[in-house]
Design a protein around this nucleic acid. Structure first.
Lengths: 215, 215, 215, 215
DNA sequence: CATGAATGAGAGTTCATTCAT
DNA sequence: AATGAATGAACTCTCATTCAT
């Protein structure tokens, strides 16, 4: 019963839902919800099809779980970081975006963005949840940083929401594309110079004072 | 039987494939390929399900046709415009992007991008075709303009491909999002100020000398 | 469109639901609802499995249709007969019961009684419908005849409902048993003397004046 | 480990099969064989699903056991009573039927009859066994009493088998209906007057001389 | 040309049965 | 002896595809 006597069976049982959700995420991202066969999900997780139903009530419940479990950890860490570093918005912005890319956008979790773009229309409540808990909170963070930058005169004035899109969408589109069509060899890193060009571009775009400093 | 009805029929007959493809595009974009029912496509086009098979061999053939018919017109017009106006890259860039948005991104055709992001992995040949004929040619155009700007000293030096992404992806993401999840009322226009902020941002990002000129 | 041009296809289409319901009734009665396979229903009706779904939304809908279509005709004919012949209750009772047996109890329709006994608990709304529209109306008819007989002094006094059960349940049980367990060769008629013994018994049981007359 | 707990365990162990069979009987009667889930049987008996397989080889073996254990006790007692009391057939008949109702028909065991009506067709050997060991012996008893009555001139002449059905089927149908569709509050007793009307009716039906004696 | 009734392979889901613990 | 996680065959239901009309 206690942790020391946990059997192999027990350990598997506790790990199962996460394993199954990971397998499902990969296939949902690759093929879409409707085109993903539960046989394939089960096979990828190394279990039989029936086992899926021990942990999830239906294919749709699996989808919801995949989204819900994929999204929360990063946001909270980032929110904590923001409140502590608003005095150097340019550096903070760069740190947030790099972290987003490395911990989310470039990982399998990043597939959730492609997945919600593809399937959101078929699952309005899941889309609403994702919008509130993930997109909304993350967007608010970025707007906060941009507003701080404008307030401090580091960035030029402008609509924080529009500027947020200019800043974030190139990186988001990178993530979406890497989980789509031309994924190439999976895990292929961005070209070396990408982040240099990216940050130079968005800081110039924001009218940041010191865009000339080399990296 | 008489000439009048014959010509009416004739017109219908010739228009049919395009009507069917338009109905299919709308539903493929809204629901995805696998979740779209041919019954619904037929109903939206006002024909019976069997009629679809008079014009398309299979659901997949319909998908290919949808993609193939959606993409060519704009590119050729844009290509012609580019060769004629390379001497003012900033103005040309703005004109191209506005045109792309108004003639493609904001129209039902813009759904094609969302569709290829969602379904490209399931249709590699279609994705390859789309990549070559649309993405490749359009990207080449934009790179050409950016390179011209750099060569003329209007834009700062940098990787043309990376810069193309910074310039184009915010707009592309707008189009994708409008055809996805949170489409809101369909056809909702972008906020007035969006293009002002957008062009100001990307021209600053490109290091363009005169970013203050009004649109 | 009109009846003369009705095609083979058309004629089949109109007859299909009844054919399918008849096949389903036979198998539901024989095996029960849960143990009946839709494959078998389709095969017995000479169609494919998918065809069932052109006419019935689900297995349960098929069950409802089977019950609802099996029950109404007899009742109405019997109700009409009753109001016209209440002045000779003994003869009327005999006529009603013979008719019930020949037009319902001994036919495939009689299986509905066995079916509702077996499955009523799993389909409360269907059972309620059957109870109101069939059992209730038929029981009311019999009670009416018995009450008329008591009022005229032809039958001895007693609870009409209890007497109805004594009168009807032997015949009902015959029908149920013939559609159950020991059906023997289907359509096996009752032994010659059964009805003689039956009517003699129930008329004596009702205290009818002239139970001594031989048939 | 000590003798006290060992004996408790022992008692549980020996009682288990009967507890499991009782749980199964209740659910088989309520829902039918195919619609009864072994999970539910196990839950109702307070054990896990796997435990069922320690005592019964399969769901069908459980069904056989349920039937076989439900039937024998009453018959033997009744058979003994019959041989000792054939000299007063009317009184004996009444006693047998009251006993059948109180010890079988009105108890959970009475559900066996409904169950065999519902499922007999799917289990021919079980049905044959039930037919021989229960129905056959019980019917023979009743016929014996009826024949004795006829021989003594207490009942009018007639086919003993047909008369047996007239006599027994109203009571049997009561039992079947109480375990079916409209069971109402379970265990609801028959109306007070039911047995009065019932015995009056069948003794009149049998042409018994003295049907006026109160119960 | 156009229809829509019919098909049947293939999907999601259930549940009797097994077996490592 | 008892458990319950795991299995996979078998079910209901769907829908792209066909073809007689």
């Amino acid at each position: 019963m206690d942790s020391t006597t946990a059997s192999t069976r027990q350990r598997r049982k506790e790990a199962r839902p996460a394993e199954l959700a990971a397998a499902a995420l990969a296939l949902f991202v690759e093929k879409g919800f409707a085109a993903t066969r539960l046989d394939n999900v089960a096979a990828r997780a190394g279990v039989s099809k029936g086992t899926l139903y021990l942990y999830f009530d239906s294919k749709e419940a699996l989808f919801r779980a995949v989204i819900e479990e994929s999204v929360l950890p990063l946001i909270e860490a980032s929110e904590a970081r923001v409140v502590a570093n608003l005095d150097d918005p340019a550096r903070l912005l760069r740190a947030l975006l790099v972290e987003w890319w490395e911990c989310f956008g470039a990982t399998p979790l990043g597939g959730t963005c492609k997945l919600m773009i593809s399937e959101g229309g078929n699952f309005p409540e899941v889309a609403a949840y994702f919008n509130e808990q993930v997109i909304g909170r993350w967007s608010a963070l970025l707007r906060q940083v941009i507003e701080a930058g404008i307030a401090r005169g580091v960035f030029r004035p402008g609509s924080p929401e529009a500027l947020r899109q200019m800043v974030f969408h190139p990186l988001l589109m990178q993530s979406v594309l890497q989980h789509s069509m031309f994924a190439g060899p999976p895990g292929r890193p961005l070209p070396e110079q990408y982040f240099d060009t990216y940050f130079d571009f968005i800081l110039r775009g924001l009218g940041a004072a010191d865009t000339q400093e080399p990296r």
